[in-house]
Design a protein around this nucleic acid. Structure first.
Length: 213
DNA sequence: ATCAAGATTACCT
DNA sequence: GGTAATCTTGATA
């Protein structure tokens, strides 16, 4: 186990520029658009897991019946009502965790679901968690993090990570690739029954780690 | 106390 | 393309 000072030093020496909390405190659709191409970074004891965000969906308490926050604050969704910059993690279908980036001001109740990630570093750790082995086939690789539940499994994001500040040192977002407007696809969101008409799913076109067309 | 729904995934034909 | 698995949550009584 690293000492606190050594930990701090190793975090600061990473080749990633951490996104400040103020970034998250703007309108959810603005944040959502800029999330594409950024890196999700998770520091663990032995490794550093990194992945590029390639698919996202916005949810908003104010005009969006599909959002967990639509009917107001509850024990489950209260993190969504904090000011932007925290991770909202929920458990679904008795099996899976999904993670969201909380946006906008306090009490707004808006967040962006991370649906697709292109693995960059720590792939053997992700593989072990998803498939129980470090070596995986090409077919397994494309299935590693191309869905919200798969991402949380691979990155080890569970109940304990709910409410984690994204401006801390263990789990954060970092500057990534600039994505051209022309290579961004926009559709309605996946897997919901209400508010299907809202075109709030953004993804990087042609990227293999997008969960669906 | 009971119950139905759910921001998914894996596996089947 | 279809569906079973699995259990937490929030609503209702």
């Amino acid at each position: 186990m690293l000492t606190n000072a050594a930990w701090q030093k190793s975090v600061n020496s990473l080749p990633f520029r951490k996104i400040p909390q103020t970034f998250y405190q703007q309108a959810v659709l603005n944040v959502e658009l800029k999330l594409l191409g950024k890196f999700l970074v998770k520091r663990e004891e032995e490794t550093c897991l990194v992945g590029k965000i390639v698919e996202v969906e916005a949810y908003d308490a104010r005009f969006d019946e599909a959002s967990h926050s639509f009917k107001g604050k509850t024990a489950r969704n209260k993190v969504m009502f904090q000011e932007g910059g925290y991770l909202y993690v929920y458990f679904i279908y008795g099996n899976h965790f999904c993670c969201n980036v909380v946006c906008d001001k306090k009490e707004v109740g808006a967040a962006v679901l991370i649906r697709g990630i292109e693995p960059v570093s720590g792939i053997d750790v992700m593989s072990k968690r998803r498939f129980g082995k470090k070596e995986i086939s090409a077919k397994e690789l494309v299935n590693l993090t191309n869905g919200p539940g798969k991402i949380c499994k691979a990155f080890g994001i569970r109940r304990e990570e709910n409410g984690t500040p994204l401006f801390g040192d263990t789990l954060f977002l970092a500057e990534g690739e600039k994505i051209k407007t022309t290579s961004i696809g926009i559709t309605s969101r996946i897997g919901i029954k209400k508010a299907k008409e809202l075109p709030w799913r953004f993804f990087i076109k042609e990227n293999t780690f997008v969960s669906a067309l």
